Simulated assay, not measured.
Amino acid sequence: MSTATGAQAPARDRAATDAATAPPARRPRVALLPTAALVLGALYCVVPTLWILIAATKSRTRLFSTDTYVPSLDLGLVHNIRDLSDYQGGIFWRWMLNSFFYAGVGGALASFVSAATGYALAMYAFRGRTALFNTILAGVLLPQIVLAVPQYLLLSKMGLTDSLIGVLLPQLFNPYGIYLCRIYALSAVPESLLEAGRIDGAGEGRLFFSVGLRLMGPGLVTVFLLQFIAIWNNFLLPYTMLTSDDKFPLTVGLYSLLRHGAAEASLYSLVITGTLLSVLPVIALFLSLQRFWRIDLVTGALK
């Protein structure tokens, strides 16, 4: 026993000596080109937002007389919000409510239409399904600006221009949302569960509302958020459809305010403040819906 222990001691000493004299492990090199591209992309997104945040803190007199990225500490933001609220009887908040209506109602209805269409394309086999899906998929590649004039001419013949419905109807059909819902339905809704429901006597409508929509919930959150942001930021469609100031969304309303600011420079601070306030709801919605994506990731891991 003592001989074996004595033989093992030099081996341990040699192993310790080799470990101490071995060159340190090479750390992976940081790829400079992708890192630089990432930094430039981050700056491209952050710098304009930072400029708006700083410029909104400046009063009308200091907006063009101080350094660009030096914020003002004299409660300029409070005064700008007050002046914006007083402009034309508080029409800015009317634009804000209109944007919430267009984006909220339009996003919810578009998500439901996308869910129903994607579910049908994924769960049912019928003649022409592939051709129909390819046609819908081609709509993803079609720029929205191409459809603005035909949509206006069609809705004008129906007498729906300068109305809330005229802004909502063209945005209910979302090809990209249908594509996402079809992909998500294929992966989240098992056909065996639907077959079990049919054996129990459940109709197709009940299966869709009780089984399909519930299992597609996290995916629908993504579709709703994308459509909400698309409608919230949409400018061309409401600009061509609406003529009344009290029906404008924020995008068109702020553009009209900016156009008036060309003749009255004091309105620039109101436009900047309004732009800052228009970004906050989107950020709040994005942060509040993150938990659904986490649930979706956990569910995928369990599967």
Rank of each mutant, 00 (worst) to 15 (best):
G261T: 06
Y255K: 13
G201N: 05
R82I: 08
A31V: 00
E264N: 11
L186P: 04
G217C: 13
L180T: 06
A36K: 02
K157V: 14
L172H: 07
Y102T: 00
R27P: 10
L142C: 06
W232Y: 03
V189D: 00
V298H: 08
T243R: 15
I165G: 08
Y176K: 04
T68Q: 14
Q227A: 05
F224Y: 03
A11K: 13
A115E: 02
W51S: 06
L194D: 11
P143V: 06
L73E: 07
I52A: 08
G217V: 13
F235Y: 15
T21N: 15
T61S: 15
V47E: 08
A55P: 11
S278G: 02
I199G: 12
G159T: 00
R291N: 01
Y44K: 12
A138F: 10
T273A: 05
L155D: 07
F235P: 09
P23Y: 09
L250G: 04
L226S: 04
I54H: 06
V282N: 04
S156H: 11
I183V: 12
G90F: 00
Y179L: 05
A263G: 13
P23H: 08
R29A: 13
F133Y: 12
Y255N: 15
A230C: 08
N98W: 00
L164N: 12
T240Y: 13
A125F: 14
W232P: 06
A115T: 05
P175F: 03
R198W: 07
F208Y: 07
I145G: 13
A115D: 01
R198S: 10
D67E: 14
F126H: 06
V70I: 10
S2Y: 15
V30C: 06
T61P: 11
R29P: 06
G128C: 09
R82D: 10
S111E: 05
F126L: 03
P34D: 03
T273H: 02
G139V: 02
L84D: 01
D245T: 15
V211T: 09
T68G: 11
R294Y: 09
G217W: 13
G128I: 07
A122D: 00
M1H: 12
V223M: 06
L297Y: 11
L84W: 00
G219N: 01
R294F: 08
F248K: 12
G261K: 02
V167T: 02
P175K: 04
D83M: 08
M96V: 02
K303I: 07
V167A: 07
E264Q: 10
M158D: 11
P170I: 11
R12Q: 15
T35N: 06
T243K: 14
Y268H: 12
S288N: 01
F112I: 14
S72T: 10
Q144W: 14
T275N: 10
M96S: 04
I54V: 13
P24L: 14
S210F: 11
F126T: 02
L257R: 05
A22R: 13
S266T: 10
S99E: 03
A9S: 14
L33D: 04
F228P: 00
A125V: 14
G107T: 04
V167D: 03
L50A: 11
Y268K: 12
A115G: 05
W51L: 06
